[in-house]
């Protein structure tokens, strides 16, 4: 019985940690949908956003105000990206854009560190990374409060974004641009507005993801590398699907924890670091569009 309980605990911890990956992956999906490019700067955006947030808090702004100001800042970053990077590169190949996002990443990393310094900062959200007593009492499971919060935040973000895309005019415009930017502009959908919306949304998602990760691991440069962890999530979930980002994150989170605990010892541990990539390779071989990715439509 304790064996089973332990297994459940591992899976739950994995799933909840997975939602943190989902949050990062979500930012990628947004930009991939609109520009068909993998935004290498997403990790840097996470770092940039949360560092600015902590910086504003240190300047004495209250939590909520700092949050709003950072969102505005990310809007500004989105605007500058649209004007200075995307617009001049419009109608260039997707590879060109990909390279540009790598450059954008360096710029954002540099700017963030120039503005706020390089030392590791602590972010206290008032939610501890320790088990919730109530859940221990009722189910006998150890579940971290921070994990649970991340799960809830991720769920509400997804819900909000899904509604935005499915039912609003802007959302319809975005999906049209995602399919064929040329055709979208030919019928009067303003590409620059859509891009601005998408990059701002990705900035907000980056901020939320950064806050969750920052609270757990400290606000530091290593957050940039989160982008790498999002890659297998995206491969499994599908680059263009919001639900895919979530499910992909959950799958990665759960499998890496379970593998680490049960199979890890045979490999000398620390397989958490590479197991997701192995899983991703299997997906690339057998289902390259991912679980929820948009199928490549071919009429025969």
């Amino acid at each position: 019985m304790t064996e089973l309980l332990f297994f459940v605990e591992v899976v739950v911890a994995g799933l909840l940690a997975g939602t943190m990956y989902s949050l990062v992956a979500l930012g990628f999906v947004l930009i991939y949908k609109a520009s068909s490019t993998f935004n290498f700067a997403q990790g840097a955006m996470v770092f940039f956003a949360v560092l600015a947030f902590v910086g504003f808090m240190e300047l004495g702004l209250p939590f909520f105000l700092a949050f709003i100001v950072t969102i505005l800042l990310m809007g500004l970053v989105g605007f500058c990206t649209e004007r200075l990077v995307l617009k001049p590169l419009m109608n260039q190949s997707e590879d060109t854009l990909l390279m540009a996002t790598i450059g954008l990443g360096f710029v954002l990393e540099g700017l963030a560190q120039a503005a706020w310094g390089v030392e590791v900062r602590r972010l206290d959200l008032g939610i501890g990374d320790f088990p919730i007593q109530w859940i221990i009492d009722t189910f006998g499971l150890f579940v971290s409060a921070l994990d649970l919060t991340a799960g809830l935040v991720a769920a509400s973000l997804i819900l909000g974004l899904s509604i935005l895309f499915k039912y609003t005019k802007m959302g319809l415009g975005l999906r049209a641009v995602a399919d064929d930017p040329g055709a979208a502009s030919s019928i009067g959908i303003p590409l620059n507005n859509i891009m601005l919306l998408v990059w701002t949304a990705a900035g907000v998602v980056a901020l939320v993801a950064g806050m969750m990760w920052g609270a757990r691991a400290g606000v530091q440069f290593a957050l940039v590398d989160l982008a790498l962890k999002a890659l297998p999530v995206l491969i499994i979930g599908g680059f263009s699907s919001i639900p895919g980002a979530i499910v992909g994150g959950l799958i990665i989170g759960a499998t890496e924890k379970v593998l680490e605990v049960y199979i890890g010892p045979y490999f000398g541990g620390a397989i958490e670091g590479w197991a997701p990539y192995v899983l991703a390779i299997f997906f690339l071989l057998y289902r390259p569009e991912g679980l929820f990715g948009e199928k490549i439509i071919r009429r025969v």
Binding site: K169, R175, D179, D180, G188, I189
Partner: peptide
């Protein structure tokens, strides 16, 4: 033609009224 392949026919028509 350049229709939006992943949108439904009606959604495609509606995008035309975006402006």
């Amino acid at each position: 033609r350049r229709c939006f392949g992943h949108l439904t026919v009606e959604e495609n028509i509606i995008t035309g009224a975006y402006s």
